[in-house]
């Protein structure tokens, strides 16, 4: 046999083993399905949480860019004075933009957004103050600087209240980071459980085929030859589990799509939820395959030596 032919036979053999190990799963549909679904759920859970967190991060990221301070002016400060104050603030080096909003503007905005306009009609006068919305310059946006700026603004005599709009966002971000860690830990644990599920399934099939493995070794089968069908079994479990995970995820997300849209509209956000469908379609089966082959490898490795006639 020359090299080329040897290689051709080798590849052909791989394809045969690949198909026959799939056939093996097919012959035990109930057991195979249960294993595959368990793997699918274990993969889908962290992936789903990851999708949610990614979206939350993205959305909060959009808001985060602007470190915004709202300055509520004293009641007696008129529109002209307010405008002047705004222009004066714009010349500060740590302020990149200002926007003046008169008390009438505030009223209009409140009417539009709250839907409580008719209630305002009953009030004797406009209760809303004029507002200057200040955006801190980017390089001044670190927390310490922004708090310093906040303090200086609050001390100004025309200003009744200076409020950093983003405090809740920082809390959300910390919360989000914590959640991300938790999801990472969960993903690691569930990966281990996928390894164990596949390892255990392969272990059982090794025990069933112990006589065969012994014979193969006695007639000169290498460890690689013995391992191969089990690795392909792990491969199929992982691949099919990954596909199940993807389908589960897409179905679940489709179900919660409408509530999310409703939620988004309440927050008045241009809020496009990203299912990460494409990325996950690659990542889930790939992760499944990696875990499947690794789990099979570990299980067979342990038993290869046990069966070794030495």
């Amino acid at each position: 046999m020359n090299i080329v032919e040897r290689f051709k036979n080798y590849l052909l053999r791989h394809v045969q083993v690949m198909l026959s190990s799939l056939g093996e799963l097919w012959r035990h549909p109930l057991a195979s399905t249960m294993t595959i679904v368990v793997i699918g759920i274990a993969l889908a859970l962290p992936a789903g949480l990851l999708v949610m967190l990614t979206n939350i991060t993205q959305i909060s990221g959009q808001w985060q860019d602007s470190h915004q301070i709202s300055l509520f002016l004293n009641e007696e400060v008129g529109d002209t004075r307010g405008q002047q104050l705004a222009e004066q603030l714009l010349s500060w080096p740590d302020i990149s933009a200002v926007e003046f909003q008169s008390s009438n503007d505030s009223l209009r905005e409140f009417r539009e957004l709250s839907g409580l306009g008719s209630l305002l009609d009953n009030l004797p006068k406009n209760p809303l103050p004029a507002v200057i919305i200040v955006r801190a310059a980017d390089d001044f946006s670190e927390t310490e600087n922004i708090e310093d700026l906040l303090e200086r603004l609050a001390r100004m005599q025309d200003i009744a209240l200076a409020q950093l709009d983003m405090q809740w966002l920082q809390r959300l971000r910390s919360l989000n980071q914590t959640a991300q860690r938790a999801v990472q830990i969960l993903a690691a644990l569930l990966s281990v459980s996928v390894l164990l599920v596949i390892g255990n399934t392969i272990r059982l099939s090794i025990l069933n085929r112990q006589a065969e493995i012994r014979v193969v070794k006695l007639v000169g089968g290498t460890n690689a030859f013995v391992r191969r069908p089990f690795l392909y079994t792990g491969f199929w479990y992982g691949l099919l589990g990954g596909i199940i995970a993807w389908l589960t995820l897409q179905t679940s997300l489709a179900v919660i799509n409408d509530p999310i849209k409703a939620l988004a509209s309440q927050y008045d956000t241009v809020f496009r939820f990203d299912w990460l469908a494409g990325e996950l379609f690659l990542a889930l089966p790939l992760t499944g395959v990696l875990l499947g082959v690794l789990g099979a490898w570990l299980a067979v490795g342990k038993h290869l030596n046990a069966i070794e006639p030495n």
């Binding site: 036979n9 080798y10 052909l12 007639v219 000169g220 089968g221």
Partner: peptide, 10 residues
């Protein structure tokens, strides 16, 4: 079986 193991062709 021994021939398959040795990588013989079909």
């Amino acid at each position: 079986l021994p021939l398959i193991i040795a990588g013989e062709n079909h």
